[in-house]
Simulated assay, not measured.
Amino acid sequence: MTALLLLHTSPVHVPVFDALRDRNHPGAVLRHLVAPELLDRARTAGPESVAPALRALLAEAGAGAEAGFGAVLVTCSTIGATAESLAPALGVPVLRVDRPMAAAAVRAGTRIAVLAAVESTLAPTRELLAEEAGERPVSIRTHLVAGAWERFEEGDTAGYLARVAEAAGAVTDADVIVLAQASMAGAADLVTGTVPVLSSPAPGLAAGLAASLATRSAP
């Protein structure tokens, strides 16, 4: 049975990934850790500052094939790169949820628009897209969705997603739109524009489960 450990910085992600599991990966086992303080620290002191706490948290949770979890999926884009760097110490793959989305974005076209509700997410997402693009020339434009995060923090999910969808619908000069945060995924179905919109939860979960299965199947 495939088992995956997920680390979130908001509890809103738990039902989203459970629903994706039930729809696309029945029988997979997910364990969720929620640590909002990691995003708070990353926003004030930089993503690298969370590395010691993140490593300790994952180690305490039993991340590792011997504990039954063949991989870790981190759903916070701000700390994604920091999380990936911990894989050698933990001994299992540590994946950032937005990497498969970024790979799909650079395949979709050269003009990429990035939408985020938190400013600290913009630079890591831009760097990830550039990394996935490699030698391919791409133009990456970032947009901070005004007022969206305040609604998220107030628990106004509908208002949050509406703001994101409105911002995405206003983008016309791009080949593809990237929703930088996993919490934005629900907005993709609300966008009325013609530019394709990519979100991270579904491809990220599929990649995490595949990595977990590969780890546990290895001799």
Rank of each mutant, 00 (worst) to 15 (best):
V29K: 15
T121A: 14
L38K: 09
T142K: 11
L58C: 03
P137Q: 02
P88A: 00
P124M: 13
G159C: 02
W149D: 13
C76D: 15
P36E: 01
A67V: 03
A63I: 08
G109F: 12
G186M: 03
A116F: 12
A165N: 08
E166G: 15
A187I: 04
P36I: 00
G91S: 04
D189R: 15
D156C: 02
T9W: 09
E119C: 00
E84Y: 03
H8P: 06
V145D: 03
P124A: 13
M184G: 06
L128W: 10
P88N: 00
A182M: 15
P93K: 04
S10H: 14
D18N: 13
G68T: 06
I177A: 04
S120Q: 11
R126C: 02
L6F: 14
A187E: 01
A130G: 13
T194A: 15
A211H: 01
S199Q: 07
E166N: 03
L90F: 01
S10C: 12
A167P: 05
I140E: 09
A105G: 06
H8V: 08
G204L: 08
P15H: 13
E127Y: 03
V50C: 02
P124K: 10
A180H: 05
R163Y: 04
A45W: 10
G208N: 10
H32F: 07
A83T: 08
G27F: 10
P26L: 05
P203R: 11
S120W: 04
A218L: 14
L33R: 09
V74S: 07
H8A: 11
T44E: 15
A123G: 02
A133Y: 01
A133L: 10
P124Y: 08
A67W: 12
P219D: 02
R141E: 11
A182I: 04
H8W: 07
F17R: 12
F69S: 07
I177D: 02
